[in-house]
Design a protein around this nucleic acid. Structure first.
Lengths: 344, 344
DNA sequence: TTGTATGCGTTATCAA
DNA sequence: TTGATAACGCATACAA
């Protein structure tokens, strides 16, 4: 169908009775070519509507100004923000971004990694899927000379650059805040423990209890309350206990915190007076619920910028600096009404 | 730094005392190669950890299984959803997605178009930037044999495939709904009128007034109320009028509708009894505000899928079918409490 | 400053 | 069924 013949440096050379190599030189660095011919070449290239064929150039030079990004879902606030941050930096550097969704599926993640490897991208930035045990596909990447940067959900055992939130510290801060507001029996909605981010959030929760010498009560720790619905279900269960919690830290997400709030409303339980709630991620809706929800801002755009910057730093430093390097992006506790028991 | 020599079909051929072309055949379609040697080749390729070099393959075949996407911002709900939809389809087809942000800047949009053109992507999917008058950069694309699909914010004058919401129809529906709930003086928060989506929404508003023979009152039509803050400012102005509106259609976004709601709260104005509010986009927060906000669901993921499907349809039909083709994705009016004057 | 020649890794055409 | 070879468009080392 589309057999349009594109303009090449050959065509330009022919038209000007020059050599393709001169055209190439003029178009690129401009070195070793007289000013007059250079201008002539540039002008004719423009006139003939010439566009470089980056594919050919990449094949020749062996490197590809492209970075691959693999995330579970593109249309999730946090990931969309990280990608936007990455893009901001890569754009400045003239790099392109190839985006893939793993859809939380191991199979798909492997396929994504492979296509990116085939494309010979110079770097793969990835937040791993939830259901993973074996990271051979990622080990393999490095053998092919492709940089690898993990973020957010990282596989600790892999020796790569990592950019993460300091989940533990901020989680501890959040729970300490709740304790200092007078909450005594704080429940935890936790995420899949094979992901380090959720292990860290739990660790922060435990550290806070320890600091204040509060007992760890296993029945107050609920697994896998990701969504609004699961958060609601967990809350119903918790509030039906003989000794129900007086606060809930929804460490999985603001969506599950929303589920908590909805159930509290349903049961006529006063928030924050009878039940404190803290979420995670600072979704836009947390500031307009009633009461507004205390949560954690992950600084996701900044995280994206940092990730990209890390790659270019490594690249420009010339040598494979610190393969195993951990960068912490400091998240912030955003205190809102849902945990302000004292002040109300 | 990274001078890893990658395994090529040459290496495989050498090892097996075969010819590179046989290896290529075995690896690709498998035609014209005996089963035994084919299996041998596949096995050794696996063992040697061979990965195709898609760059070389693309250069040779002349086509690139890559689609470029340009949006104003990646981290905006609507666009993130459209991209997710596109990705779902392109992934199935084995195509890659290169993503760029124009950041609402004309300059940047042109640069994005150019890099994608240089990469010889087979298709560019774009939602144009707000501040545009001249579309030469897009005209140019087609001259290079690259398909062009516009979505959402489209340049009418360009003869391309377009996928849009039926903004006018649903806007009319929304305003009719408000009128039938008893609102009489309905204000409009409108977006930049050089973008057709905003012209259409306004047209829907005007059509509804006309249908019910209500007068068009210029002082009730406010320009450029994009954000929560601008929506709030416009609302303050409107409510301070001698004859203030009894409803506001925030056709720009739910964020501006949120601004309206906040000001109403501030001034102690009852929603929906004294003031009706309708937003646009069905952001997740609209269902949990108090009252919940009537809005319009744009079916953005479906839109993304449709766009990608359109490209592959054109591709597979073999011939450049309908260059100028308009597909309407039906948005839906979501009626919530903020406009239910009668029922309350 | 310019031209010549070669190769990047593949696929496609032709011959064996 | 297999092998030899050219070509995709460009960049670069080297020669002129």
């Amino acid at each position: 169908m589309k057999k349009l013949k594109r303009v090449t440096i050959y065509d330009i050379a022919e038209k000007l009775n020059l050599n393709p190599s001169s055209v190439s030189r003029a178009l690129n660095n401009g070195s070793n070519v007289s000013l007059s011919t250079r201008e002539l070449i540039l002008k004719t290239a423009e006139e003939m509507n010439y566009k470089v064929n980056s594919i050919a150039a990449n094949l020749r030079t062996g490197h590809n100004q492209t970075i691959g990004v693999i995330v579970p879902r593109i249309n999730q606030n946090f990931f969309a923000n990280v990608i936007a941050g990455i893009e901001e930096v890569t754009y400045e550097k003239g790099y392109n971004l190839v985006i893939c969704q793993s859809n939380e599926s191991a199979d798909r993640e492997i396929k994504c990694v492979n296509t990116l490897a085939n494309q010979h991208v110079s770097c793969i930035i990835i937040s791993v899927s939830a259901d993973f045990e074996d990271y051979a596909h990622l080990e393999n990447i490095r053998k092919q000379g492709i940089s690898l940067i993990q973020f957010d959900r990282v596989a600790d055992e892999l020796d790569t650059m990592k950019v993460v939130n300091d989940n533990e510290k901020v989680s501890m801060e959040a729970v300490c805040h709740m304790i200092s507001e007078g909450y005594q029996r704080i429940a935890l909605l936790e995420g899949p423990q094979n992901l380090s981010i959720f292990r860290q959030r739990k660790a922060g929760y435990l550290a806070a209890l320890k600091k204040y010498k509060l007992p760890v009560i296993p029945e107050l720790i609920m697994e896998n309350a990701w969504t609004t619905e699961l958060g609601a279900a967990a809350t119903k269960h918790l509030l039906a206990l003989a000794e129900p919690p007086d606060a809930i830290f929804a460490s999985t997400s603001d969506f599950s915190a929303l589920g908590v709030l909805e159930v509290a409303d349903e049961l006529g339980i006063q928030v924050p007076q009878q039940l404190g709630i803290c979420g995670y991620s600072n979704e836009s809706f947390t500031q307009i619920t009633n009461p507004s929800i205390t949560t954690i801002e992950q600084n996701s755009v900044l995280m994206g910028k940092t990730i990209a910057q890390l790659y270019f730093d490594e690249l420009e430093s010339g040598t494979s600096v610190a393969q195993n390097k951990l960068v912490n992006i400091q998240p912030e506790l955003i205190i809102r009404n849902s945990t302000l028991k004292l002040s109300r």
